[in-house]
């Protein structure tokens, strides 16, 4: 496989991330997806390389996905999940950094509740830093796997219309998708209550904001991405009740039937809130493809950021 040089040694976010680099990652991921379907889905490419999964925030899916991606490429993998309670105030970032440096790892996959932590680490380490989610800021690998999924399904992302429904305000997935989709020439329609989808989001890309999930919209768009609604948003008064949210913005079976395109969700799903159980059976659903594609995309990212060792 031809190995293209990405313009940045890190993957911190999709804001301002070059189109060519996104396409290079997506092209490379396609090759790895084939590998994953082979009887022995493993390559020796990153033998001798070490990847550190540094997850300050608990995650099962993303961490497992990176875990698998590294192993499929024969890299060694270390998982660290520093305790991050508000009482202990979290491990000090400089200490973390010194430890990372001392371990001489080649790539650090970092997730943290605070925006900017991967950027901070990137400034202070020689390892390639991959943002696996920094607070409500960005989650570029998730958006890349979403772009990959759309591209596999539709052939091209340019010209697609994608509705992102739900808690955009607190969503790193939404932000990265807004940037990535806009860069590739898609149109983004953000849907949700005004409290969770402020109109200022229109300034961040090729974005429209609507506060009603109309049937016409479901029929007009190529993809509907439902976002996870966290129950604590209810306590903070962003909407009146989960029932109300579900009624206005939930993808019910009824609504799912009206989706002309595809249904996506970054997972894990809060069934009964943003998706009604069974909704996935009413339309073309790519939710599990997203999971499979996640491994291929993350393999591509590791591969492109880490030059193979010689000899």
């Amino acid at each position: 496989m031809e190995r293209i040089q990405l313009s940045s040694p890190h993957l911190l976010g999709l804001e301002g991330y070059p189109r060519e680099d996104i396409l290079a990652i997506l092209d490379t991921a396609r090759g790895f997806l084939k590998v994953l379907k082979q009887p022995i889905p493993k390559l020796p490419t990153l033998r001798g390389r070490t990847v550190l999964n540094l997850f300050f925030e608990p995650s099962t899916r993303t961490q497992a996905s990176f875990d698998l991606a590294a192993k499929r490429l024969s890299a060694d993998l270390v998982n660290i999940s520093p305790k991050s309670s508000s009482v202990v105030k979290g491990e000090h970032l400089l200490d973390t950094l010194r430890n990372v440096e001392a371990m001489r790892v080649d790539a650090v996959v970092v997730r943290h509740r605070a925006p900017g932590v991967p950027h901070f680490l990137a400034r202070h380490t020689r390892a390639a830093v991959i943002n696996a989610g920094d607070g409500a800021h960005e989650h570029p690998t998730q958006a890349l796997l979403d772009l990959f999924t759309l591209r596999e399904h539709f052939g091209d992302v340019r010209g697609l219309r994608v509705a992102i429904v739900g808690d955009v305000l607190h969503s790193r997935v939404a932000r990265s998708n807004i940037f990535g989709l806009s860069t590739l020439g898609a149109e983004v329609i953000l849907v949700g209550p005004p409290t969770l989808v402020p109109s200022e989001f229109t300034r961040f890309g090729n974005v429209r904001v609507v506060h009603r999930l109309e049937d016409d919209l479901l029929q007009a768009v190529d993809a509907v991405m439902a976002l996870r609604i966290q129950k604590e948003r209810l306590e903070a008064s962003f909407f009146g009740s989960l029932r109300e949210y579900h009624r206005l913005y939930g993808i019910t079976r009824e609504r799912a039937r009206r989706i002309r395109g595809v249904l996506m969700h970054p997972g894990p799903v809060n069934w009964g809130v943003e998706l009604e159980r069974g909704a996935e059976e009413e339309t073309t659903t790519l939710i599990l493809d997203q999971v499979t594609h996640g491994v291929a995309v993350r393999m591509a990212i590791l591969y492109l950021l880490l030059p193979p060792l010689e000899g």
Partner: peptide, 10 residues
């Protein structure tokens, strides 16, 4: 310096 080098939230 130690206190200020926390992440932006902390």
């Amino acid at each position: 310096v130690f206190e200020k080098e926390f992440d932006w939230l902390e």
